[in-house]
């Protein structure tokens, strides 16, 4: 399955399919390992009529072989602001580069097509390639939470980047 408007050179983003439960470690965002049963339950819980859904998990797959390499979770408040969180498969040598490409697909879709006023991305400050992609996409660093994320050997700051939609004319106090 390919979504034409969410397909790039190396990665594509698509809705989950039933067989994704077999590779849950790659996309299920949990430090506690998810087996097939837990992954299937998670997918089941997300099957709403789409007009009622406010939480979406999409699969990130590699273009060359359709291998599942991660996921992106969208959390939508009232269709003005959307929060984005990535999870990449463990042991990917190029996770940061692949996540950056997925971000380049997502931001135009959410900011320009869906016209969200703000698209928020939270990530630790050691994901330097994704951060560079965010800045290329003219996302702004809105929040830095000190020592908020554990990383191997210590803690990292959590950064919140926002893609602010220039189409919105916001009288701002």
């Amino acid at each position: 399955m390919r979504v034409v408007y969410l397909t790039g050179d190396r990665v594509h983003i698509r809705p989950p399919v039933e067989s994704d439960k077999e590779c849950a470690i790659a996309w299920f965002n949990s430090l506690v390992p998810a087996n097939e049963i837990r992954a299937a339950q998670s997918m089941e819980n997300q099957v709403y009529p789409y007009w009622e859904a406010t939480e979406f998990t999409f699969i990130i797959a590699r273009v060359v072989d359709d291998a599942v390499i991660g996921s992106v979770h969208l959390s939508i408040g009232d269709w003005r602001v959307v929060s984005v969180r990535f999870h990449m498969a463990p042991m990917l040598p190029d996770a940061d580069e692949l996540r950056a490409e997925a971000l380049r697909l997502l931001i135009p879709w959410l900011r320009d097509e869906h016209e969200f006023m703000a698209v928020r991305l939270a990530l630790p400050d050691n994901q330097t390639v994704t951060i560079a992609a965010a800045e290329e996409l003219e996302m702004v660093l809105s929040v830095r939470l000190r020592e908020f994320v554990p990383v191997p050997g210590g803690r990292a700051d959590e950064l919140i980047y926002e893609a602010l939609n220039p189409r919105w004319e916001v009288p701002h106090a």
Binding site: M117, A118, L141, S142, L145, R146, E162, V170, H172, A173
Partner: peptide, 14 residues
């Protein structure tokens, strides 16, 4: 630490 933009409306402005 920063700000989240456009969180809600007050007195007619975001």
């Amino acid at each position: 630490a920063g700000r989240w933009h456009y969180e809600d409306i007050k007195n007619g402005v975001m």
